[in-house]
Nucleic acid binder design. Structure first.
Length: 196
DNA sequence: AGCGTGATCTTT
DNA sequence: AAGATCACGCTG
């Protein structure tokens, strides 16, 4: 399948959070290591209108990447131990990003097993901190984009609506009520919801 | 159900 | 300068 081009990402954040489901995120590492994962869970963080979004009050040194061109990677360090991966949406200077919350391993599972210290496939990338660990993504990836030989996303057929679930976002305190989490129904690689 | 862990943001 | 918060994962 072809790679997604920049115009694909220049969409309203909520719309893109749904369209990214089923697409194949790819990272190529030196030494012919190919890591691929099918995106199965996302959350939308919608710029200035969204109190839970890092950019809702305007640009800061941490969130400045969210104002960059669509298709840029926004990676930040959370809870003193995890890196979280987002894809920047909307036109340049309009902040917004989709948090990638879970993927299904497609290629490179052995590499991921070693990095994660587990061999259970449904545990390799079934959470936003887990998948960055599996893919060796950290703050050095912040600001890179999806139009290189290192990172890109392969297209896949759109999913029918009946396969897409919706819920409130996980682990936030502001704007809890907004149904801005999207996931593939009945997919075992979707993260376990916290606090139940 | 509890806690580690450190950068970032807010308030003094 | 100090304190609160945090888009989480793991143990028990």
């Amino acid at each position: 399948m072809e790679r997604l081009e920049q115009q694909f990402y220049e969409l309203p954040t909520l719309e893109l959070s749904e369209k990214l489901l089923g697409k194949i995120f790819v990272r190529l590492l030196p030494g012919n290591i190919a890591l691929k994962g099918r995106i199965v869970e996302t959350e939308a963080y919608c710029g200035r209108e969204d109190e839970a979004c890092h950019a809702w009050r305007g640009k800061t040194s941490r969130n400045r990447i969210m104002f960059q061109a669509p298709g840029t990677l926004y990676v930040y360090f959370s809870y003193g131990c995890h890196h979280l991966l987002n894809i920047v949406t909307e036109a340049e200077n309009t902040p917004g990003a989709v948090l990638i919350r879970a993927m299904e391993p497609v290629e490179g599972a052995l590499f991921m097993q070693e990095r994660r210290g587990t061999s259970l496939k449904t545990n390799l990338m079934s959470g936003p901190g887990k998948l960055t660990k599996a893919l060796a993504i950290d703050c050095s990836c912040n600001g890179k984009n999806l139009f290189s030989e290192e990172f890109f996303v392969e297209n896949a057929p759109p999913l029918p609506n009946r396969m897409i679930g919706t819920s409130t976002r996980v682990g936030i305190s502001k704007s809890r009520e907004l149904p801005w989490r999207k996931f593939i129904l009945n997919n075992p690689h979707v993260s376990k919801v916290r606090g139940v």
